[in-house]
Design a binder for these strands. Structure first.
Lengths: 229, 229
DNA sequence: TGCGTCCATATTGTATACAATTTTGTATAC
DNA sequence: GTATACAAAATTGTATACAATATGGACGCA
């Protein structure tokens, strides 16, 4: 069951649970207890507790004392908040990049990875989200601000959980790649306003699609609960 | 020793340790072990471990397996990164506030708290930092974005640890209050550019002072290590 | 003196037993 | 039939014992 042997069991349990949650193998709201996970993983409560604490920190799991843990429910309000924070952080990235000096190679490198990404074949929405996240994280890393990068990654992780419900079409993919290229071009031309606008378009497009996907997911869940009752 | 009885020991230990670190009762680099803290607090390793994990998450403590834990060292790079993130997030706050509708009372309320704060007598740099943080956190709360507020609070906590080394003068205090008022005025006048500029001035002023304070602290630490050797 | 090896020790990682607390089910009185 | 009190079960909170592992120093050897 272990994929890669890691230095401790806590991170093993954490990784597996996180992966399952992100892949929707546990539905939002799904409840589990420390004891139950112990039996499932064949480890004691100590590492399980640590893993759960990490998941709670990552906002993927809610904890209610003496009742148990549960996979975070979809919450439109929170999703919008996350998109706003993402917008705030990435706008700063863009502004910083258009205004600071950097060697031509840096731009070239990012451009080449963009080319590679464009060639990548996308089969599901998780891969598509990964592609988009990867591009934005590369931009952030380019600023050299590690803290900023970490924050963006953290946001991305929480949103990825949502984004896998998004629909994927070759049309969407092509559009997104074009938006990424436009951002890169604006940076090269050192046009702040233009770059900011391009970024905003890209992010808002994502927000809109996710919003749509969530509403459908919630509708399905509602129908499911009616059928089940 | 317990100030307020809390539902569990982990948060007790966490709060006390955090407070001590922020107050510089433990110097940066100070090392402690799980066992040692158990004896000091008279509790077992379970709650101590949880408390330490939380401190590591909050970036106030570093952990090195099989060597122990240590209070985070001052790191100029990281401080600059934090200030940049703070700038990114708060710029968004300002933009959002100047551009969205809100009832007049909201502005009045913030203005009144500003008046109260101005009257507050400041005796040390920690109180001064608290005052400044409080203002900025109120601005963030005003946007209604809970996630954004949490992020800013987290940043503030990490910086507070640094800011307590800052010097405090009545001059600085007056200046800061004026900057705060200017931000408020610009928001009321819905002048985005002006508000952004005012915010930037306020934050960069803080950054500059902290930078100065840190350099002195590092110099002192260096002299101390020489004297000790 | 310098370097490498080995072992004792310190420290965290894990398992398990017990305590405290909340929830939930049930019986009883009204 | 409903509400209340009480008991039992489920669940997390805490303590402790044991295992694994890296560190640092001592010792031997060149």
């Amino acid at each position: 069951m272990k994929e890669q042997h890691s230095p401790n069991l806590s991170t093993d349990v954490f990784s597996v649970l996180k992966e399952r949650i992100i892949r929707w193998e546990y539905a939002p709201g799904h409840r589990f207890t420390e004891e139950g996970l112990c039996e499932e993983f064949g480890v004691s409560r100590s590492p399980v507790r640590e893993a759960l604490r990490m998941l709670v920190e990552n906002k993927l799991v809610d904890k209610t004392p003496h009742k148990g843990y549960s996979v975070k429910q979809l919450d439109m309000q929170e999703i919008h908040e996350l998109y706003d924070v993402r917008l705030a952080l990435e706008t700063f990235v863009i502004e910083r990049l258009t205004q600071s000096e950097y060697p031509e190679e840096d731009w070239q490198e990012l451009y080449h990875t963009w080319q590679d990404l464009q060639k990548t074949s996308i089969t599901n929405s998780s891969d598509f989200a990964k592609l988009d996240e990867d591009f934005h994280e590369r931009l952030a890393r380019w600023t050299g601000n590690r803290t900023l990068l970490d924050q963006i990654r953290s946001i991305d992780e929480r949103l990825h959980f949502i984004r896998v419900t998004d629909i994927t079409s070759t049309e969407r993919l092509r559009e997104t790649c074009e938006q990424h290229l436009r951002i890169l071009d604006c940076i090269r031309e050192r046009n702040v306003d233009c770059a900011r606008e391009a970024l905003q378009l890209n992010i808002e497009e994502g927000r809109k699609n996710v919003e749509h996907a969530i509403k459908e997911a919630l509708a399905r869940a509602y129908m499911g609960s009616k059928a089940g009752a």
